[in-house]
């Protein structure tokens, strides 16, 4: 698929030339610490932790999209499939140096899955063995928020959530992304 290959190439190129690198362990530990702290602050209420992570991600995403567009200098995507490739091959590449697989499209091309072969945020992580975290906590939930925030800035209202996570013992880590609607000529919403 040519748009996919093109996106890959753009992503690789940007990663090599335009991105300042930062130590992965630092990122990992920073993120891990945030999650662990939230778990502690919310006293093990993992639903709430998931919500907070998503919200943090949303606020990041709204800002990150500017940086993404400035660096990548890519034009408007023709359709949601192209958007998906852009997210996976360019967005994830330049920010996390990974390229999750885009798959499981619905027939109306409005829903797809990102399957993460690797997840730098979750390196070293083992969920607390309190018997609930395994079922309730989505450790990397911040990513859902980032996508929602970023795409909202480019007029796409989406919904994203994890459906599986290797940290929970699943075989794969998979995020489901659904296009809710294109936002036409509206004022950007207030920050949440």
């Amino acid at each position: 698929m040519s748009s996919t290959t093109k996106a890959s190439r753009i992503g690789e190129e940007l990663w090599k030339t335009r991105v300042d690198k930062v130590n992965a362990e630092l990122v990992t530990l920073t993120y891990g610490t945030i999650v662990a702290q939230l778990c502690q602050d919310y006293d093990g209420n993992y639903q709430e932790v998931n919500k907070q992570l998503e919200k943090m991600g949303y606020n990041i995403g709204m800002r990150l999209i500017e940086d993404f567009l400035a660096k990548s200098n890519v034009g408007r995507c023709a359709n949601f499939r192209e958007t998906a490739d852009m997210i996976s091959k360019v967005g994830f590449r330049i920010f996390l140096n990974i390229a999750p697989t885009v798959t499981n499209w619905t027939s109306d091309n409005n829903q797809f899955s990102l399957v993460f072969d690797e997840n730098p945020l979750a390196d070293f992580v083992e969920l607390p063995d309190d018997g609930r975290a395994q079922d309730e906590l989505w450790f990397s939930n911040i990513l859902c928020g980032v996508l929602r925030g970023a795409l909202e800035m480019v007029q796409m209202q989406i919904e994203a959530h994890f459906v599986s996570d290797v940290l929970r013992g699943d075989d794969t880590t998979e995020m489901r992304v659904s296009l809710v609607r294109y936002i036409e000529d509206e004022m950007p919403p207030e920050e949440e």
Binding site: E25, L29, G32, T33, F124, E126, D129
Partner: peptide, 19 residues
């Protein structure tokens, strides 16, 4: 090293990781 990098592991705690 990986185990103690786990954000949920607190220093000085028993390592209970099955992994």
């Amino acid at each position: 090293v990986k185990t103690v990098m786990n954000p949920f592991y607190r220093q000085g705690m028993e390592i209970r990781s099955a992994v």
